[in-house]
Design a binder for these strands. Structure first.
Lengths: 107, 107
DNA sequence: TGACAATATGTCGCTGGCGACATATACTGG
DNA sequence: CCAGTATATGTCGCCAGCGACATATTGTCA
């Protein structure tokens, strides 16, 4: 769960995104499931933020964080936890149900 | 998000659980939503673990943790992150979809 | 009942994820 | 083109959440 983080990051630069994030190299099913879920939340966050016409700076302020962290959240950066993603979604008005829907639309 | 943790803990001892966890005291809607979601995952974890006839010790080993941490997860202890809960569910075979369903059944 | 397995609770040292800041790189209208 | 705004990327010191361990409590079956 530590070695594989860099792999993912590498792949996404260069615009890979071959369907699901499951690389040929290394990731176990469990790691893949975890990453999918996380990426689903990332996308949901960006969507929701834009829909509400809020900048990263504004969101950051609202959740007591910084613009750079928001950018990292939306980029699916390894240094961001699912905890923070969910808290941010909730701060943007998402209910637990809405969060569930976001996860469901993973792939 | 730090002051309110103790409140929740207190309430749950003594078997309160008045419907949803929203106390009269303090919790904002956002804190409440976060806690509901977390508790939903706690319950889902215990359910899934028992269904698979796995002890806390066995699960702990599987996820590289300890029995005490598993107990805390299932107790919804403040020291447990949603991240760890989700990782554990996945380790027990839950797909992102299944995780979403668990959250959806919050209350 | 007593012995044993399972779970719960408390504490501690270490580290991964945190906010903050600096800086680079897109966007966008004039 | 330039100025201003938004987003991206990198680094750092700090502390919340981690695994580990000790111990208490609960459950169960002979």
């Amino acid at each position: 769960m530590k070695a594989s983080k860099k792999k993912t990051k590498k792949l996404e630069r260069g615009g890979w995104k071959i369907g699901t994030v499951q690389d040929l190299l290394g990731l176990t099913d469990e790691e893949a499931a975890y990453l999918e879920l996380k990426l689903a939340l990332s996308r949901a966050l960006r969507q929701r933020r834009q829909k509400h016409k809020v900048t990263q700076v504004q969101l950051a302020k609202k959740i007591g964080s910084s613009q750079s962290r928001v950018a990292k959240m939306e980029a699916g950066d390894p240094s961001v936890s699912i905890d923070l993603l969910i808290r941010s979604l909730i701060a943007l008005g998402a209910t637990p149900e809405a969060v569930a829907r976001s996860i469901r639309s993973a792939k």
